[in-house]
Nucleic acid binder design. Structure first.
Lengths: 214, 214
DNA sequence: AGACTGTAGTTACCAGTGGTAACCAGTGGA
DNA sequence: TCCACTGGTTACCACTGGTAACTACAGTCT
């Protein structure tokens, strides 16, 4: 074996795989998540069966395609989360990083959030959320880990941290999705307002005069 | 026209439509969101084309199917939101209502959240989130309305209310989805912990000893 | 040289999907 | 009796994901 522990053939195969993934990405960006395997193969200058040899099935291709972006996003978020600053600043930086990413290329993140409903016809077992949004799950778990490591939440803190992790990620995602569709305000304002929500301003805000509180 | 403003024929058609929807619901609950039009038609004891006469296309059927459940859920949530109690109690009641609903029949809500990626092949315009989760959008807007009506958020309060509305709904959804998959704790604990998050406990919690704060 | 093996690539196909055109049968009214 | 209408059907279309069977060319061993 050579210095990297793989033969020249394996290396060539890996490079080919990268080329195919790039072609697939071009097509998905152009045609949306419903892009067909035929279209992807054509873009790569080949035909379907070799795609299947490399990636098994469409899910495999999409998973490989997703991995690169999720890893990149996760790295960026971890960096924001680990920056040397006080808690509020970190939260805002993390939110802003996420929003900047989805703003930069929305198609990619639409694809990541809704990756190919497969729905095996004979699968009796009900698998809610397994294919729904793996990226969100990963983000939630990751955030939960950071929260648990850094904040003292008393007994059962692990449980609380996970709930908060998934909850905050969901908040970020839903608000970001809505914002991206309507663009009702600047990114900074969205970030500040969401951080305010996490800082308890919903609880401390005054009732509107003349009605029962929310 | 008769007392309800429709002929007997129209009335019969509406009833037929209801029957078809019930059959469709049975199939979707059994086979998941990927259920085929053929299967639905067979369950209703008929064949495809009359489904298309009634609902136009699959999206139409699914939209009609979704409407009933979303309306029911929205009503329940509005009731919890409007109950005569203090703010915290209302928030908890609303969260609990949502979680109880998705717990009661998860399949229905999985269907509502991911209703049939259509992705018209020639649609160049990028429509992030338009088909992704109409129910979540509706919930977000609804909550935003309630927040705006009842809480004084100063100038630009409408904007803030919408951000919070979508954010809170996203939090509720993501945490609920995760919880439903793993069932790591009782519903009540999830509700309390999420409400704590909204009440600013993330901001007020102490750092873990020996590290920079989150 | 010549045979053997493995791999990239092809064509041609399969079952099943959403969707539609054309037709058939019964029913009420002129 | 003939006409329009309506619920329903069969038979099809283009296309999808996925696969089997084949060709063509690389390298290797005898």
């Amino acid at each position: 074996m050579d210095s990297r522990g793989q033969s020249a053939q394996q290396q060539a195969a890996a490079q080919r795989r990268r080329q195919l993934l790039e072609a697939a990405e071009r097509v998905v960006l152009r045609d949306g998540p419903g892009a067909s395997m035929n279209a992807i193969a054509a873009e790569a200058g080949i035909t379907k069966p070799i795609l299947y040899r490399h990636f098994g099935d469409k899910g495999g291709l999409y998973k490989a395609l997703a991995k690169r972006h999720t890893d990149a996003l996760l790295d960026a978020l971890r960096a924001a989360l680990d920056a040397p600053a006080e808690r509020r600043a970190r939260v805002e930086a993390t939110l802003d990083t996420y929003l900047a990413a989805i703003e930069a290329n929305p198609q990619v993140y639409r694809f990541l959030m809704h990756p190919a409903e497969d729905a095996a016809p004979l699968d009796q077992s009900f698998d809610i959320g397994r294919h729904s949004a793996p990226l969100l799950r990963r983000l939630g778990e990751e955030l939960a880990k950071v929260i648990e490591e850094r904040i003292d939440l008393g007994p059962d803190g692990g449980q609380r941290a996970r709930i908060w992790g998934h909850g905050i990620v969901g908040m970020m995602h839903a608000a970001g999705d809505w914002w991206l569709g309507e663009r009702p305000c600047a990114r900074q304002e969205l970030v500040t307002t969401m951080a305010d929500l996490l800082w308890g301003r919903l609880a401390s805000a005054a009732d509107r005069p003349g009605g029962p509180g929310f």
